[in-house]
């Protein structure tokens, strides 16, 4: 299957079973106060620092490198593209990029690492304004050596990787200074954020949470559905803005403030099991192995009447961290629900 096409169709998480806390998806029959809520203090704790404060280097020598941060001049970016360079996480990706592959097409190795850039109003005179990591993460990052609009030459960049295993999950991260002119990189710090499994959504999407000093990081993974996983896009509305990820998961930081609350809503398009004329799910192999799995009608081919329509339904997962005066602890709540009615796409 064409991964970019799959991702553009946003074949995302299979979601169900709202408000799964621990392993119990069924609401309790008898009310028992705060049961089912997660106190933030029970969420695993670690570190996930923001962009470094203080003086930034004016340049990084080209000879200086940092593991996991490969700054490459991709072949074939073309005339007029300025001094664009690409940041990738592995040697293999760097080689691919140097050959002109690995962005927007072609065979791309699975990306385990994702990058977020430093975000700030660079033109502001306000010296006290702090920068933050951009909410969106991508398998690669591009930089321009131009310093227009007050943008500094050397920027901080954040890299993270979600590691899931039988024993649990952890978010590994590393931050570095990048100099797009010299292509040098300098490691700033590494950190680890252990994660607590908060909810399990039908189809395999998982919601994790981890906390550092004043923030709860909520992560939604795409379903572990083979080739759909890594290209799967997940969006989130947070703080009035939008975050997006093509890394198979999306992390959203929610501030933990007494007397206040912060929320994020992840949105994705859930692919439902295709049904035959009797309304029964078709065998999985039939659904997936056809060489013309996607929209022969668009290709001008006759519709295979035995092939079921593709079914999609937008769904949202809502995460909230809130701390009212009477709460002994801040509360993390995760729920989900259908975002709109089901849509079918004729095969």
């Amino acid at each position: 299957m064409n991964k970019p096409l799959a991702s553009s169709l946003a074949l995302a998480a299979l979601l169900s079973a709202v408000t799964v806390f621990g392993a119990d998806a069924t609401p309790k029959a008898t009310p028992s106060g705060d049961s089912g809520l997660i106190g933030v203090s029970t969420v695993a704790a670690g570190r996930l620092p923001g962009p470094p404060k203080g003086k930034r280097p004016t340049m990084i020598p080209g000879s200086e490198k940092a593991p996991g941060f490969f700054v490459v001049k991709p072949k074939g970016l073309g005339r007029g593209s300025g001094d664009f360079v690409m940041l990738v996480a592995t040697v293999a990706q760097a080689k691919e990029a140097a050959l002109g592959r690995g962005f927007g097409g072609g065979e791309t190795p699975a990306n385990e690492f994702c990058f977020a850039e430093e975000q700030k109003n660079w033109g502001s005179d306000d010296e006290d304004e702090e920068s933050a990591w951009a909410p969106s993460v991508q398998p690669q990052a591009t930089f321009n050596s131009s310093t227009m609009n007050g943008r500094p030459r050397v920027e901080a960049v954040h890299q993270e990787r979600l590691v899931q295993g039988a024993a649990g999950a952890v978010l590994e991260s590393a931050d570095a200074w990048i100099d797009p002119v010299t292509r040098g990189a300098r490691l700033i710090a590494r950190s680890t954020l252990p994660l607590t499994r908060v909810a399990t959504i039908l189809g395999g999407s998982v919601v994790y949470a981890g906390r550092d000093e004043h923030t709860v990081h909520v992560i939604l993974t795409a379903p572990p559905d083979g080739d759909a996983r890594r290209g799967t896009q997940v969006f989130a509305a947070v703080d009035g803005g939008i975050a997006a990820s093509q890394c198979g998961y999306l992390r959203v930081p929610l501030a933990n403030e007494k007397g206040q609350g912060h929320t994020a809503t992840f949105v994705s398009n859930l692919e439902l099991a295709p049904l035959n004329a009797q309304g029964k799910p078709v065998p999985k192999d039939l659904a997936k192995t056809s060489p013309q799995r996607l929209t022969p009608s668009l290709l001008g081919l006759p519709k295979d009447v035995d092939r079921p329509d593709n079914r999609f339904r937008p769904v949202h997962v809502h995460a909230s961290v809130s701390w009212a005066s009477r709460d002994k602890d801040a509360l993390l709540s995760v729920t989900s629900g259908w975002d709109a009615r089901e849509r079918t796409q004729p095969f």
Binding site: A10, F235, A237, G240, I242, G259, Q260, G261, H262, T263, T265, V267, N269, P314, S320, S322, A324, S325, R326, D339, A340
Partner: peptide, 23 residues
Amino acid sequence: VLDDATAEPMEASLQVQREVGWR
């Protein structure tokens, strides 16, 4: 959402909900 001890609203609850993407 009003905190019943302080009578203050949570700011997040006063945000106008905008629809995202295909929403």
